[in-house]
Amino acid sequence: MSGSFVAFFILSLLTIGGAVFMISFTRVVHMVISLGITFLSIAGLFVLLEAEFVAVSQVLVYSGAISILMLFGIMLTKHDASDEGTGRSWKNTFSLIFVAALFLVIFWGIQNTAWPGVTESAEAGVSNVKQIGLEVFTHFVIPFELVSVLLLVALVGAIIMAKKEGDNE
């Protein structure tokens, strides 16, 4: 057993465990913490795949920003704690059976797939961040700029909608 296999196994268990706990917990704050663990584990898997830029983006965007945004949304809204976790006995049993069957199908598919050999996709000594930058700013400049304009329009629209809702009160 190599170290990367052990790291992959542990990160995979954390990813799957965090996702299962996220749908199993009854308190929303616990769900967000489980989701954060899942996001961090996925970032670790990206590091194992030597995609450091994607891993850092995963940590910054999802583990940091999205999880904090969810926690603020939960903390700032009113909800009744007695409503959480009611009527889940048959749903838990059905979910367990479904997840076990899905696991068996995926495991069978992975074991019976003929995987191609490892190919050397990147030149030695060239970082994938440099490759991403070169691709984005040489071949995909126009889509990159269109996405930035789209995000700006969405931000302005959200501000206008929030201002209209605030004026009604």
Score class of each variant (00 low, 15 high):
Ala154Val: 13
Val54Gln: 00
Trp90Ala: 13
Val54Tyr: 01
Trp108Asn: 13
Lys164Ile: 11
Val105Ile: 15
Ala154Ile: 15
Met161Ala: 14
Ser67Cys: 09
Ala154Thr: 14
Val126Thr: 12
Phe144Thr: 10
Phe72Ile: 15
Ile106Gln: 04
Asn92Trp: 03
Ile97Thr: 06
Met75Asp: 14
Lys78Trp: 07
Phe140Val: 01
Phe46Trp: 06
His79Trp: 10
Ser63Trp: 02
Asn112Asp: 15
Leu49Glu: 04
Thr138Phe: 04
Pro116Ala: 06
Val47Tyr: 10
Leu152Ala: 13
Phe103Leu: 07
Tyr62Glu: 05
Glu135Pro: 01
Ser67Pro: 00
Gly133Asp: 06
Glu120Leu: 10
Gly64Glu: 03
Asp83Gly: 04
Phe53Leu: 02
Glu135Ala: 12
Lys91Cys: 08
Val136Trp: 04
Trp108Phe: 15
Leu104His: 07
His139Tyr: 08
Leu134Tyr: 12
Trp90Gly: 09
Glu145Tyr: 11
Val105Thr: 11
Val54Ser: 00
Ile159Gln: 05
Glu120Phe: 05
Ser148Val: 12
Val59Tyr: 01
Thr77Tyr: 10
Phe137Met: 08
Val126Pro: 04
Gln131Ile: 15
Ile142Lys: 10
His139Gly: 05
Gly109Ile: 03
Glu123Val: 11
Val136Thr: 05
Ser67Asn: 07
Ser89His: 10
Gly117Arg: 03
Ala124Gln: 11
Ala51Asp: 02
His139Asn: 07
Gly73Lys: 01
Val59Ile: 13
Val141Glu: 10
Lys91His: 11
Ser57Leu: 09
Ile74Cys: 12
Glu84Val: 00
Ala81Gly: 03
Val149Ala: 12
Ile66Thr: 00
Val61Gln: 01
Val56Trp: 09
Phe144Lys: 02
Ile159Lys: 07
Phe98Cys: 04
Ala124Arg: 05
Ile97Val: 13
Glu120Gly: 05
Ile68Pro: 03
Ala114Pro: 07
Ser57Asp: 05
Ile132Thr: 00
Ala101Cys: 12
Val59Cys: 05
Asn92Ile: 07
Glu145Pro: 01
Val118Ala: 01
Asp83Gln: 06
Met75Val: 14
Val47Thr: 08
Gly133Arg: 02
Ala55Gln: 03
Leu69Ala: 07
Trp115Thr: 02
Glu84Tyr: 02
Val129Lys: 02
Val61Asp: 04
Glu135Asp: 13
Lys78Tyr: 09
Leu49Lys: 07
Ile160Thr: 10
Glu120Gln: 08
Ala101Val: 13
Leu48His: 08
Val47Lys: 00
Thr113Gly: 03
Gly125Met: 04
Asn92Tyr: 09
Ser121Pro: 08
Val156Thr: 13
Gly157Trp: 14
Ile132Arg: 04
Lys78Val: 05
Glu120His: 10
Gly125Leu: 00
Glu52Arg: 02
Ser82Arg: 09
Pro143Lys: 02
Phe137Cys: 03
Leu60Asp: 05
Ile68Trp: 00
Ala101Asp: 06
Lys164Pro: 01
Val149Ile: 14
Gln111Lys: 12
Glu145Gly: 06
Gly157Ser: 15
Leu71Met: 08
Asp83Cys: 05
Leu48Asn: 07
Val99Leu: 13
Ala51Pro: 03
Leu49Asp: 11
Ala51Asn: 07
Glu120Met: 08
Leu152Cys: 11
Asn92His: 04
Asn112Ser: 15
Leu60Arg: 03
Asp83Tyr: 06
Val105Arg: 06
Gly117Asp: 12
Ile160Phe: 11
Ser127Glu: 12
